[in-house]
Design a protein around this nucleic acid. Structure first.
Length: 993
RNA sequence: GCGGAAGUGGCGUAAUUGGUAGCCGCACCAGACUUAGGAUCUGGCGCCGCGAGGCGUGGGGGUUCGAGUCCCUUCUUCCGCACCA
């Protein structure tokens, strides 16, 4: 029988499922290997060909590791809480759980038919109560913890309370809110419980905080910074505005340094590590206090509103504190809290106008405006702590409220934005380095020696910066400081379809629910919209109330469940713990994680954060969860286009009656056939008038009768380019009949090329329904089989590279598998292998591929493996090889890539069904690759000139002598001795004469 | 603007990591078998040239006996960040 992939694939998929072939054991004497895919959100659209790319790669890797004797954990699940299901629910009233379930079933069916070796007994769904019970549990641990900087780890709140009871707040070094109180043990004990709880909330790793959030009115929810793009929501593209709100937050900033340091210990792609570094945004510098210069005593104006000033200094953060003698003004963010009290009556109008302008500007405008200088003077001054000089205070929107302290000391000689600002407002620009060039722009150099800098004059950067920090510290006006750009992560969403937060409010204070009441089940609601009063949908739930007070109504964000799910796979059905200690100690961490780079600063950062926290609590052993990360590239769409020609019908004569008749009787579609021109003829059509006339004539011919009746003729008007469904196109050739069936009702003409083909144009675009360029794996599996799809997806190019999907060429992969199948069968398609001893050439082919696949899988170069498989099979076909010894090993080597066909052949070879996946990978023997002779290239004067055949048996010295004595070389030497002989690794590679 | 990645035939790509550029596949061309085939097999296929030969890895320069690979410079494309003090 010919290669009957459908039957084979169905048979083995059924066998694997029934026999749980890929079930991983938590107890094994084999070494462990954990291969994880980023689990998908089950969207309604199902899988397209881009999704399985990473899954196929990880599956090949997992299968290969099994052959190499590892106990492999290779699970799959669903990140099943999310916005689309909720949006759908709002529109249709359908419960998101139902939509999600249906989508999961589609995903499962699509995944199953590709033949992945997932251990489905460990499947997880983040929206399942068995799972989110533990997400809630981890939230409770975070609530019950604080970050102790001295120990550099999270510790329990209980421990902190004990400390407060004994020592008060003295000596506590915590990552906490800025407004924590200072108190003695006695004062602490005297506080009311409520007061104590309020204070503890400032320390907890998850806490409530009034903060400006990205509020999306259209979605009725708060979004994280990484869910907002250019002022619009990432999902849906709705406008996002800033709004003050009390929100649950996660103190991820406590882990900023460890998140940064950890990047050096893991094997991740550089771009991802780099993105995380930028996101964390560490800058080393100093904070400096500038005393506010109080004018009340100099001008005696007692109505001056600056008497309202409560702090007598403004704090700034700077990375170049050494330039402090160059400060000629200070700039605050318009939103800075001191701005109203600093503004003098004379400047009030100007400042208020400016603030109003800034507020109006969207984030987009602010970005577009980046180069125009704007700002306003407050009328107030501060005093520079190093030289007691009076410095004017401005506001400007180039200073961001959210970074540092929202205030900068402006050094126009060293910072380009300050420079432009100073030029614009006529402020002085003072150089502070002897080699600084500041005629046309700021010069941020660190070279040279300081000038105009009092006690720093003559020092270099290194000494200067140390000196000025020492000076500021001694005066209590500043200190070295490290600033991070990363903000605490907001952890509440005003949505329905997410994990409920296991918290209730009593007297406005949050309390955790009892652990034994977990999971806190997501309640039913009548509608999935916010309430009329703007409360989240959960506020609609009836009879959903804790005995002591109302539950929290917001739910957790999308990244909650995905921040720990890899541990659940280790022990997916445990109802006592999120995973048993024994299981976690066995599997430990993910050895290989494959997924898209779009999660670089979201999921991958939060997961590292939660992992570090769980480790601080002693619940997991490893500091980093994902040892090696591979980003599979994105598959873009390849759209196809057809070109339609439009014609108008014109009267033949100027006869007025004709014109009237045509305009009255003429129904365009009844007369003019729908006309498409092949893309390869379009140029000629546009540039060659004769050809154009020819085409018009031939179209006219098809509607000759009608034209004659009305006395009209066709005149060309325009060409229009249209998307055409890529499923109607094969190798850019349009399947005309199918296209007609689907799109054309009446007559049509296709101007085809000399082969009778209609060629389509193509372009790369995002894969989307509206562009008709979505290729569904189902169609390809149906037509070519899963093994072909797997081979072809890997063959397409390097895994990490983004590339357009192009089905052209999938035939090559299919032909390869059929050729492979034929090796085992005679002309009548009867299975037939021979037990003869393999020949040298056959062994050579086999061992080349054994080694190649080892090397390729080690460096995740799956595409080159596929090429090598093709070479091996071509060679063995040429050798008419049907030797059992060769084929059996070849089946094992190919099985990770094309598991179904290999399993079938494995059993035909007489092996037990299901044993292939755990068969030992054949041992590579280099001896088989040794050839008697090899072609030996030698260049003369740097140019390739001579090819010698040399016996491999020769030693390197003998080779040298052989080469120099050979007639070919002697011919070039022409009696002279060579000037220079270049030998590399014992081989002559070049002779200079 | 800053950071990162990448530019090789008509196309996707490969190159022992500094050693004969273009493996493998698609497309194309020719041939064989076929009355027929969206089947199979054989051969060809970077460019210029009838040829010998010359030129070729975005452009320019450099290091080297030798550069797709390393260095400098420049252009282009993609991705990320976006006034970060």
């Amino acid at each position: 029988m010919d290669y009957h992939f459908k039957e084979i694939e169905r048979k083995w998929q059924k066998f694997w499922a029934e026999n749980q072939t890929f079930k991983a054991d938590n107890n094994s004497s084999k070494p462990k290997y954990y291969v994880l895919d980023m689990f998908p959100y089950p969207s309604g659209a199902g899988l397209h060909v881009g999704h399985p790319l990473g899954y196929i790669a990880s599956d090949i890797f997992a299968r290969y590791k099994r052959l190499r004797g590892f106990n492999v954990l290779h699970p799959m699940g669903y990140d099943s809480f999310g916005l689309p299901a909720e949006q759908y629910a709002i529109q249709t009233g359908q419960h998101p759980a139902i939509t999600t379930e249906a989508n999961i079933n589609t995903y499962r069916r699509q995944l199953d038919q590709i033949g992945f070796s997932f251990d489905w007994s460990r499947e997880v769904r983040t929206s399942s109560p068995d799972f989110y019970k533990w997400t809630q549990w981890i939230f409770m641990q975070l609530f019950n913890s604080w970050y102790n900087k001295s120990a550099d780890k999270a510790e329990s709140i209980e421990k902190l309370v004990k400390y407060f009871e004994q020592n008060g707040s003295a000596g506590v070094d915590a990552v906490c809110d800025e407004d924590v109180l200072t108190f003695t043990a006695a004062e602490w004990m005297a506080m009311s419980n409520r007061h104590q709880q309020e204070e503890l909330l400032k320390y907890r790793l998850t806490y409530l905080r009034e903060s400006t959030v990205n509020w999306c009115p259209a979605l009725g929810t708060v979004l994280a910074n990484d869910e907002v793009k250019d002022g619009f929501s990432e999902r849906g593209g709705y406008p996002v505005e800033q709004k003050k709100m009390t929100q649950w937050s996660m103190r991820i900033t406590a882990y900023a340094e460890r998140l940064l340091q950890g990047l050096d210990t893991i094997d991740w792609p550089d771009p991802v590590s780099e993105m995380q570094r930028n996101w964390i945004g560490k800058s080393v510098g100093a904070s400096v206090r500038f005393t506010i210069y109080d004018l009340r005593f100099t001008n005696g104006n007692s109505t001056d509103n600056r008497s309202l000033i409560t702090n007598n200094y403004i704090e700034v953060f700077t990375t170049r504190v050494d330039t402090i003698f160059g400060v000629t003004f200070m700039v605050l963010a318009p939103e800075h809290e001191l701005v109203p009290s600093l503004t003098t009556p004379q400047q009030k109008a100007e400042i208020e106008t400016y603030i109003a302008q800034t507020k109006k500007k969207s984030e987009l405008d602010r970005m577009a405006d980046a180069k125009t200088v704007s700002g306003a003077f407050t009328g107030s001054y501060v005093v520079n702590p190093v030289n007691d000089e009076k410095v004017p205070i401005y506001i400007a929107d180039y200073v961001l409220a959210g970074y540092g302290t929202g205030a900068v000391m402006a050094v126009p000689s060293g910072d380009q934005r300050d420079y432009l600002f100073a030029k614009h407002f006529g402020l002085p620009i003072v150089p502070i380095m002897d080699i600084q060039k500041i005629e046309t722009e700021a010069d941020p150099t660190k070279e040279g020696r300081y000038i105009n800098s009092a006690f720093m004059n003559g020092l270099n950067y290194k000494d200067g910066i140390a000196k000025v920090i020492e000076f500021l510290e001694s005066k209590g006006m500043g200190k070295a400081k490290i600033n991070y750009r990363m903000r605490d992560a907001i952890f509440g969403r005003q949505r329905y379809w997410g994990e409920p937060v296991p918290v209730y409010f009593k007297d406005d204070l949050p309390h955790l629910i009892d652990e034994k009441d977990l999971p806190l089940i997501l309640p039913e609601v009548d509608k999935y919209l916010p309430t009329e009063t703007g409360e989240p949908p959960l506020a609609r739930a009836k009879n959903w109330k804790h005995a002591e007070g109302a539950y929290e109504h917001s739910t957790m964000p999308g990244w909650a469940g995905s921040s720990w799910y890899w541990y659940r796979y280790m022990d997916a059905h445990n109802d006592k713990e999120f995973a048993s200690r024994q299981a976690i100690d066995y599997w430990r961490d993910v050895d290989l994680y494959i997924g898209g780079s779009e999660h670089a600063t979201g999921h991958l950062l939060y997961s590292r954060f939660w992992n570090k926290f769980l480790r601080d609590l002693g619940l997991v052993p490893e500091e980093e969860p994902f040892k090696k990360l591979i980003n599979q590239g994105h598959i873009q769409g390849r759209s196809n286009f057809v070109y339609r020609l439009f014609f108008s019908v014109q009267p033949i004569s100027d006869n007025a009656r004709d014109v009237e008749k045509i305009s009255m009787d003429y129904k365009y579609n009844d007369i003019v056939p729908v006309t498409y021109i092949s893309y390869d003829l379009l140029d000629r059509f546009n540039n060659d008038p004769n050809y154009k006339n020819e085409v018009i004539a031939s179209v006219s011919k098809t509607c000759e009768k009608e034209l004659n009746e009305i006395g009209g003729k066709l005149e060309y008007t325009q060409t229009m380019k249209r998307h055409v469904d890529v499923n109607l196109v094969d190798n850019d050739v349009l399947e005309i009949e199918k296209f007609k069936e689907n799109h054309i009702k009446g007559n049509s003409v296709f101007i085809t090329n000399k082969n009778g083909d209609y060629i389509c144009n193509w372009e790369i675009e995002k894969m989307s329904k509206s562009k008709y360029n979505v290729v569904n794996p189902d169609t390809l599996v149906e037509r070519y089989g899963a093994d072909t799809l797997r081979m072809y997806e890997m063959f397409l190019g390097p895994l990490e590279q983004s590339k357009p999907w192009n089905t052209n060429g999938i035939e090559g992969a299919f032909k390869f598998l059929r050729k492979f199948w034929k090796l085992f069968h005679d002309e009548q398609f009867n299975f037939r292998v021979s037990d003869e001893a393999p020949s040298k050439a056959e062994l050579k082919s086999l061992h080349k591929i054994i080694r190649k696949v080892e090397e390729d899988i080690d460096r995740f170069s799956f595409n080159t493996s596929v090429s090598s498989f093709m070479i091996a099979v071509n060679e063995l076909t040429d050798l008419k090889c049907s030797k059992r010894a060769i084929l059996q090993d070849l089946v094992i080597v190919l099985s990770p890539y094309a598991p179904h066909i290999c399993e079938e052949l494995w059993v035909l070879l007489g092996n037990k069904a299901g044993t292939l996946s755990y068969a030992p990978y054949p041992k590579f023997n280099p001896e088989y690759l040794v050839e008697d002779e090899f072609a030996y290239p030698i260049s003369v004067n740097g140019k390739m000139k001579i090819n010698l055949n040399i016996s491999l048996a020769l030693e390197s010295k003998e080779i040298e002598d052989f080469v120099l004595a050979s007639p070919e070389v002697q011919k070039y030497l022409d009696g002279k001795s060579p000037k220079k002989v270049i030998v590399v690794k014992g081989r002559i590679v070049n002779i200079v004469i």
